[in-house]
Design a protein around this nucleic acid. Structure first.
Length: 503
RNA sequence: GGCGCUGUGGCCGAGUGGCUAGGCAGAGCUCUGCAAAAGCUCGUACAGCGGUUCGAAUCCGCUCAGCGCCUCCA
């Protein structure tokens, strides 16, 4: 029996607003599409949260034994600037400001995005398609929509006919709206006179004079509209129907709603079976966003060089911090919470490292009850992950195992009572979940590999052992205190051993 | 205005109709030359007011507070 059969996944489907059992279209395989970043500026920590959430989801599916095709796009064209620069492309605008070629902007921020993903140990998607690389597919998609009667051309631009679509479908099924209510609430935007209806959205926009990014099409020299790329690329790589579509909560409307309409209008199928939405990272209760001025970049986070930050925090601390909450809940950023997370993360990874120092299990009389109880903790961790990827509950289970590990370290007689099969099972999943699923790496490993530092510290430790043995506590305390002052913490262990930790 | 969400002990944050979340901080104890770490124990919580129920923080209603989307947005 495979792991995914033993621990069947259930997830909250935004489409039905219910928690459902996950049943992939193709047994043993998962196709997932997640909306990636628009590469016209640096990503901030709020962006990172969403990608981290779907990173954990991907990792967990793979851990369970699924083959996952994870598609996450790069939006390098097509999102229009909303206000004054009506109709101008965000990336084109930025290019002019920075006096760069548009693709130079794209490349710069794409590279930056990848650096950030690596920093937070977020696995690369199986396919990372770009909008500019799929213009042929998008044009074909528009053509099909026009053939099906859901799109019309006006002065070189093509629009999706929401009213027409809504006659046979429900525009608003994902976001819980309906067309009639929306009509009375639509703002009067300028520059929309070409549309037949304010609800309609652009599939193709004719480029104005001076517009930097444009491509030929049957309708005009122009560029694709806001929502098209995701429909075209998910269909190309995952099919007209696929398992999961993910993205940030703020994309639900209109982006994802439009995507569904495009998919159904073109393919007669609605794309994803399950829609997953990651919630926002907030600061003082407000969404972290560039426009709010409350966003900071990962670099500022590490250095602490931002007015919201009391000091810097490591990438793994932040990763742990984000894992403490459920992806579907808002998470509020604060220095207190980060500092608490830092210690929690250290406690967890300390347990992980202690595993290697533990005496072997099963050397005494096996206590079946204790063995089973321990094993149950590992099962619990997996059950919690399968319950809508509840990393928060999973961490709680893992911390219970940490407590056991610490106890075993202090009382070897306890671990002797655990049968080896149970112990292997627990340790395998304990470290597997931490490293492979949660994607937490042990940050102190780097210093452990520094042989010069390690050797030097061992000299000092030997000195202190001598001092301590001869009851020269003044000297032994001085060594300990002075090392502490430079960030190295010595710990006396039972039996006269000493170990060190680097903060 | 429309649609939706949240309000948990000092802080962060899970959660289910009755059974321990967990992390951080705090108190006591054990261990220890002293520390640190670790282990054990503890506090006491579910915005307010009603209702349903044998029983609700968990379901329903109202009130208050806050947030998201409706415009690019993870």
């Amino acid at each position: 029996m495979s792991l995914y059969e033993a621990f069947p996944v259930s997830l909250t489907n935004s489409l039905t607003k219910q928690k459902e059992k996950f049943e992939p279209l193709v047994p043993g395989h998962v196709g997932m599409y997640v909306c990636g970043p628009t590469v016209y500026s640096d990503v901030h920590l709020g962006n990172v949260r969403t990608f981290m959430s779907f990173d954990v989801i991907t990792r967990y599916f793979r851990y369970l034994g699924y083959k996952v095709r994870y598609v996450r796009n790069i939006t390098d064209v097509g999102h229009l600037v909303g206000d004054v620069d009506e109709g101008e492309d965000k990336i084109a605008k930025k290019a002019r400001l920075e006096a760069l070629e548009p693709m130079e902007v794209v490349q710069k921020y794409t590279n930056g995005f990848h650096d950030v993903m690596r920093l937070f140990n977020i696995v690369a998607p199986s396919i990372e398609p770009t909008a500019t690389g799929h213009l042929v597919e998008q044009i074909e998609f528009i053509r099909q929509l026009m053939d099906n009667g859901f799109a019309y051309e006006k002065a070189g631009s093509v629009y999706f006919n929401v009213r027409k679509y809504n006659e046979t479908h429900h525009y608003g099924e994902l976001s819980g709206r309906n067309v009639d209510e929306m009509l009375s609430n639509t703002r009067n935007l300028t520059g929309q006179d070409q549309k037949e209806d304010p609800l309609d959205f652009a599939l193709w926009k004719k480029a104005e004079d001076g517009h930097l990014m444009h491509w030929p099409s049957p309708w005009s020299e122009g560029f694709p509209g806001w929502h098209l790329e995701c429909s075209a690329m998910s269909t190309k790589y995952l099919g007209t129907t696929f398992d999961i579509h993910g993205g940030g909560m703020d994309l639900k409307f209109p982006h994802h709603e439009a995507e569904i309409a495009q998919n159904k209008g073109c393919n007669h199928e609605g794309g994803a079976q399950y829609w997953l939405h990651g919630n926002m990272l907030t600061v003082n209760g407000r969404k972290m966003a560039k426009s709010e001025g409350n966003g900071f970049t990962p670099e500022e986070l590490l250095t602490g060089n931002h007015k919201l930050l009391e000091r810097g925090y490591s990438a793994m601390t932040v990763r742990f911090f984000m894992l403490m909450s459920h992806y579907g809940s808002t998470l509020d950023f604060s220095n207190e919470a980060l500092q608490a997370a830092e210690k929690g993360y250290k406690r967890l990874t300390a347990g992980l490292m202690l595993l290697d120092k533990l005496p072997p299990a099963g050397t005494g009389t096996t206590d079946l009850k204790k063995s089973e109880a321990l094993k149950a903790l590992a099962d619990q961790a997996l059950t919690n992950m399968s319950d809508d990827f509840n990393t928060s509950k999973t961490l709680a289970s893992l911390f219970e195992i940490v407590g056991k590990i610490n106890t075993f370290y202090q009382n070897p007689s306890e671990i002797a009572q655990i049968d080896t099969d149970s112990w292997d099972y627990v340790t395998q999943h304990f470290s597997g979940i931490i490293k492979d699923v949660l994607g937490l790496t042990v940050e102190t490993e780097a210093t452990g590999n520094n042989q010069l530092l390690d050797g030097t510290l061992n000299v000092l430790i030997e000195l202190r052992k001598h001092a301590k043995f001869s009851q020269n506590y003044e000297l032994s305390d001085k060594i300990r205190d002075d090392l502490k002052a430079v960030g190295v913490q010595l710990k006396d262990e039972k039996g006269g051993g000493m170990s060190y930790n680097i903060d």
